[in-house]
Amino acid sequence: MTPKALKANGVLVLGGGIAGIQAALDLASSQVKVYLVEKTPSLGGRMAQLDKTFPTMDCAI
């Protein structure tokens, strides 16, 4: 393992879809600095385009 002194304190998350958002939120709630980089102008990814999700039929946003 890398010695502690050499470690930075941020994580780069590429992609602001459902997986990237989840990774960012979990990192952030463990006190890790996150840079969430998304190519398009908004977070959301494909999920935001869906109407509802199965099987619970929750709204997708």
């Binding site: 960012a24 952030a28 969430l36 980089v37 998304e38 190519k39 102008p41």
Partner: peptide, 17 residues
């Protein structure tokens, strides 16, 4: 989604690569 936009430990960089 909104939570990620508001979390103090997350910098959201959109339109970026």
């Amino acid at each position: 989604m909104m939570d990620a936009g508001r979390h103090p430990n997350i910098d959201v960089l959109t339109n970026a690569e």
